[in-house]
Design a protein around this nucleic acid. Structure first.
Lengths: 156, 156
DNA sequence: CCTGAAAAATTATTCGC
DNA sequence: GCGAATAATTTTTCAGG
């Protein structure tokens, strides 16, 4: 699961279309990329089996779900040895409100993106879940006021 | 496009399944939520028309695409009047390497998530695109070393 | 490696209940 | 909302270049 795959122009067109609409039929897709259905179906299978296409997902509107509160949380750990980092990573993955988590260069900090229904729920998640993550030493919260670009497609 | 929709338990099951696999058939979906196909198809249409389901997208592996470099950029503007913010927002949406952009409370800062092929490309994007965004006064970059949680599903 | 058409399998839709 | 029947598409397969 780590090396880039070799893609030609047609593969790129295919993933571009599938990123725009995961439910497009092979018939439609073949027409758009200028090939017949047979090779298009075969290429999709290669892309899926190779892990480049990791799945197909419905995009849900957070606002329509009432999940409009986004906060970024900077986390500093008290222990940054490998075992501690590993424990932290595992625990983070078990908190569903954490939509993203990256380890940041420079002092072994983490940046979390947390999505909740409102501030009250955010406080609860912060107090109950995030503060309780292993080895957390300090946190700083940055509240989002407006989503200018949200979960954009990957730039091909 | 702004008020939360009213959902019952079955709607929630439907969107949960579609978030897991956008290509599931109505036949399968109906079986999983314990209803017949007719009402499931009707519910999906309501969810789509209401904007809760915003679309269906193939999830691509950034690593397999060779797009493994993630940087968060904190941006401070020199002008935070409404017209300036609006200009900035519009310009941000035109940069495909910017995957996310939120306006952050407290001093009208922005937080960008930028994805590139490598550091060299990041420097180019930073120099050519981000620095050139309207009213940018200063930026700070935070390089991600590891993706612990990446583009997780929305927590239902 | 692709084409094109035929065949086989599924799927979505439309009813009356 | 159910379930069967219809109708429409879709995926797969295969011979041929």
């Amino acid at each position: 699961m780590d090396k880039p795959m070799q893609l030609d122009a047609i593969d790129r067109k295919i993933i571009h279309e599938l990123q725009r609409n995961a439910r497009i039929s092979i018939t439609d897709l073949a027409r758009r990329v200028g090939l017949s259905k047979t090779p298009v179906a075969a290429r999709i299978k290669v892309l899926e089996d190779g892990g480049l296409i990791a799945g197909y997902r419905a995009m849900l509107s957070p606002i329509k779900l009432g999940l409009s509160h986004v906060t970024y949380v900077e986390v500093r750990l008290s222990d940054t040895r490998e075992a501690a980092l590993s424990r932290f990573n595992t625990a983070v993955r078990a908190v569903p409100e954490i939509e993203e988590c990256y380890m940041i260069a420079g002092g072994f900090d983490y940046l979390l993106k947390v999505r909740t229904r409102n501030i009250a729920e955010y406080r609860r998640v912060m107090g109950d879940q995030i503060s309780a993550l292993p080895h957390v030493h300090a946190t700083s919260s940055y509240v989002a006021m407006e989503a200018v670009v949200e979960s954009a497609a990957v730039n091909l």
